[in-house]
Every structure is written in structure tokens, then in C-alpha cells.
Design a protein around this nucleic acid. Sequence first.
DNA 1: GAGATATCGATATCATAATATCGATTAAAA
DNA 2: TTTTAATCGATATTATGATATCGATATCTC
Lengths: 208, 208
Amino acid sequence: MEIRSFTIQTLERLPYYLHYMESRETEDVSSRDLANALGLNEVQVRKDLAAVSSKAGRPRRGFERKPLIRDIREALGFGRMDEAVIVGVGHLGTALINYKGFRELGLRIVAGFDLQVEDEIWVNETPVFSSDRLKNLIPRLNVKMAILTVNSENAQAVCDELVAAGIRAIWNFSQVMLNVPDNVIVRNENMAASLAVLSEYLSTGNNK
Amino acid sequence: MEIRSFTIQTLERLPYYLHYMESRETEDVSSRDLANALGLNEVQVRKDLAAVSSKAGRPRRGFERKPLIRDIREALGFGRMDEAVIVGVGHLGTALINYKGFRELGLRIVAGFDLQVEDEIWVNETPVFSSDRLKNLIPRLNVKMAILTVNSENAQAVCDELVAAGIRAIWNFSQVMLNVPDNVIVRNENMAASLAVLSEYLSTGNNK
DNA sequence: GAGATATCGATATCATAATATCGATTAAAA
DNA sequence: TTTTAATCGATATTATGATATCGATATCTC
Ligand SMILES: NC(=O)c1ccc[n+]([C@@H]2O[C@H](COP(=O)([O-])OP(=O)(O)OC[C@H]3O[C@@H](n4cnc5c(N)ncnc54)[C@H](O)[C@@H]3O)[C@@H](O)[C@H]2O)c1
Ligand SMILES: NC(=O)c1ccc[n+]([C@@H]2O[C@H](COP(=O)([O-])OP(=O)(O)OC[C@H]3O[C@@H](n4cnc5c(N)ncnc54)[C@H](O)[C@@H]3O)[C@@H](O)[C@H]2O)c1
């Protein structure tokens, strides 16, 4: 198995580099341009770029923009299309199903599951099933990724079902730190923390 | 101005400690309990707790659960209620307006703005105005926080309007790294990066 | 009451990420 | 053609965060 050579921090900056470079029209782009535009350190930018692209930069020019865009898209996995199911089709789940941008990011949501659905319903082009059918359908669809948007009380139980059904990657929007076996990866989308940072700043003026 | 004594990493773990402790009924809870339940290192847990609470733990007992819950809620700012506006009431924006849990986290969304709204409309209890009215209404409402859920192409322009209207804290869901003056804080909710991490894991098995 | 031990808090170490420095190089300017 | 300066890549340094170690101590057991 191939090993990733870049860190998660680098990965988190890549979408911003990409967006900036796609909004330009020049032949080249320098690490300084990027650093200034995005408020980052220019050494950091060069290291990030070196981590995802073998293309060298040239003195007084910078990097060729187009090949770099290709390499970043490659590193971000935009080439491959992943399929995912979503469990918990409430407010947030519905929004995510409706979000067009995921296709562009290489994600297709192929099915939803919800406790409160009796028969199959449709949210735009996506079928949503009763959660009873989860354990049967997931293996049949051969999907390995799940988006978890049930209320926090049920998150661990649903997580266990997902793992049993063969899910290997979980995007967790609930407020629970999920317990999973080693071969399953969880990524938390932690909105409470984000909010706390902003709120604290407004009340104390403290940034960090 | 009071200085925060804990890091953002600590802050990000606090919601999970809180959820775990609120789900217990014992008198005390030890750092080992928390560490095991959440898959963390117990020294790290103790340091986090020490950073937000002056209550000492006791040998063979751990920490008193209830006072600790109070201190964490305090650190997370659940006591104070912040008001925010939301700009871009599309799929995601509507979901966020409808999300009940924000109240519990100390956030009230008092108004929305969208380009495509002519007159005032209502999403549940929240009025949504034409974005023309943003520059007038925000100062009148005296709101300092904004949630930014417009499409990425318009994000910087809207951001500039928000700053001009007096906004000091921006929760940014777009794919753009916003350019703001020093006295404005931005928190990015970077879904593309999350997705990239999961996708990469599935295709390479690499975790880190 | 006398150990035994779980747990803490303080401190030391280790790991990782960010930033600074600097010589090499290449394009542009003189 | 020579000089200048922008930019890179490599390496060194610094900063930050995570983990390991260990002595102190309060509670539990006998
Ligand atoms: N909506 C947001 O903006 C937002 C923001 C931050 C966090 N969250 C988190 O996202 C999660 C969902 O939030 P929401 O606002 O969409 O809540 P919601 O109540 O609208 O939706 C939850 C859905 O999950 C379904 N569900 C519950 N148990 C289930 C099970 N066992 N199997 C299948 N489906 C099940 C429910 O029927 C419901 O439709 C929560 O954990 C919340 O904390 C949401
Ligand atoms: N929906 C998701 O699940 C999701 C996930 C990841 C990222 N995002 C990001 O969130 C943002 C919104 O996504 P969405 O799916 O809700 O898109 P959307 O198109 O449904 O909503 C965008 C809304 O912004 C409004 N708008 C545009 N320009 C405006 C302006 N100048 N002033 C006021 N309103 C304006 C539009 O009228 C529209 O209603 C995008 O930047 C997207 O990349 C969304």
C-alpha cells in the first residue's frame, strides 16, 4: 500500500491553493503570490507544493500553474469518484444530499437511510430507505464511506451498524467521538468547537 | 482583555469531554475513564481539564463530574448567547437556520440575507432579507458574527460587505480563504479537506 | 492502623509543524 | 555581456503539541 507523503495540515491547505490558482490566468504562480493571497508563510507554501508535485519551481518565475493544478487535484483525489451513503436524513443530511458541489469533489451520495422513512422516498435523485435496510443494502451497494448525520444520541449505535455492514470511512457530524476498530477511519466535523472559537474571540478579543 | 489560557486543540476536544460526562451518572470521573472512552491519552486529558478548570482531581477518585461540566460549558461559552446573521440561504444556509442545536450551543441566528430574496421571507422563525439590506440592517441589529454560506465565487465580496457593516467574526463555509483585517476572525469549515482525508484512506489505506 | 494502589500534577522528553536562513540559479535589466 | 534581483530548494532553528515518567497522596483493603 502506497504511503501518503504529506500531512493532514498540508491537505487542508490544498483546496485553497487550488481555488486561488484556478482563479488566475497567468502562466506561472510563485509561492510568494500564494502566500500573500492566502495569508500564509511562503516557505510553508513551497513545502506543501513540493509534497504534492514533482514539478520544480524556477527562479524568478515560480511554478507553472496548470501542471500544478493537475497535481493538486490528483492529491486531493478529484480524479477518482467515491460513493457514500448518508445516515440520518434530517435538516443537515438533506442539505448534504442536495449539495451539488460534492460531485466536483469526487463524491457521489448513492443512498440515504433514516429511521423515520417507511418505504423508499426520494430526495432529488437520491433514494432514501428505512434504516432497517442498512445492513443489507450497504454490502450490496459495495459502498465503503458513510456520512453520519443522525442525532448524537444514536450516533454510536448507528456507527456500529455501519462498521458491521462493511463501512471503512465515516464522516461524523454528530457531537460524539465514535469508537471504531483500527481499520476504520473517522473524520469529525466539529461545529461546536468552531463556534466556541468565534464566540470566545468576540467576548475576549483573543485570537490564537 | 482577558487571555485564553488554552489552545484550539484543547477547545476542539472539550465538546467530546462534555458529551461523555453528561452521559454519565457517577459522582466522579477520572482522566483514564475519559481517555479510554474517547481514545485519547490520559495525560492529555488531564492537561485539558486543568486548562479549563481550577478544580483539582483527587487520587483514586478523579474529578467531581458536575463542577467539571460547569467549567467546560463555561469555557465553551455556553453561558453567553451570541447572535449571528447568515448570508446565503441556499441548501446549506437553510439547514443551518433550521438546526435546533445551535441554541443549546449559545447561538441565535437572528436574520438571513440572500441575493435571490426580494421582500422579506421567513424560514421558520428567522426572517430572511434581500442582501441589499445587509449594510443597513447589520449595524442596526448590532450583530458581530456572521455565517457565510454563499457560493465560493461571491464569498470574498460578501465578506468585504460584512466587515464594512461591522462584523468581527466570520464562520466561513465557502472554499475561499478570506482576506480580512486583523481585528476580524475567520473560522473555516473545510469540507473539501475532510473529504480528501477519507477518500485517500480508502484508496491507500493510509492513516495519519 | 498499615500497607497497597489508583490517580493526580509536575516535569521531562519526544514528535511534528511552522518559520527563518542562505547559497544556487535563472530570468530580466542595464 | 555583465549585473541585479527574484525565487527556489535545502537545511537549520524555533514553536507547539503529544506522550512518558515519576514522586506525592488520598482512599481503599486487610
Ligand atoms: N444541522 C446542522 O446544521 C448541524 C450543525 C452542527 C451539528 N449537527 C449535528 O448533525 C446531526 C444531525 O443534525 P440535524 O439538525 O440534521 O438533526 P435532525 O433531527 O434534523 O436529523 C436527524 C435525523 O436522523 C434520523 N435518525 C435518528 N436515529 C437514526 C437511526 N438510528 N438510523 C437512521 N436515522 C436516524 C432522524 O430520523 C432524523 O431524520 C446532529 O448530531 C447534530 O448535532 C447539525
Ligand atoms: N451544502 C453543503 O453541504 C456544502 C458542503 C460543503 C461546502 N459548501 C459550501 O457552502 C456554500 C453554499 O453551498 P450551498 O449548497 O448552500 O449553495 P446554494 O447555491 O444552495 O446556496 C448559495 C446561496 O447564496 C446566495 N448568494 C449568492 N451570492 C450572494 C450574495 N452576494 N449575497 C447574498 N446571497 C448570495 C444564493 O442566492 C444562494 O441562495 C458554498 O460555498 C459551498 O461550497 C456547502
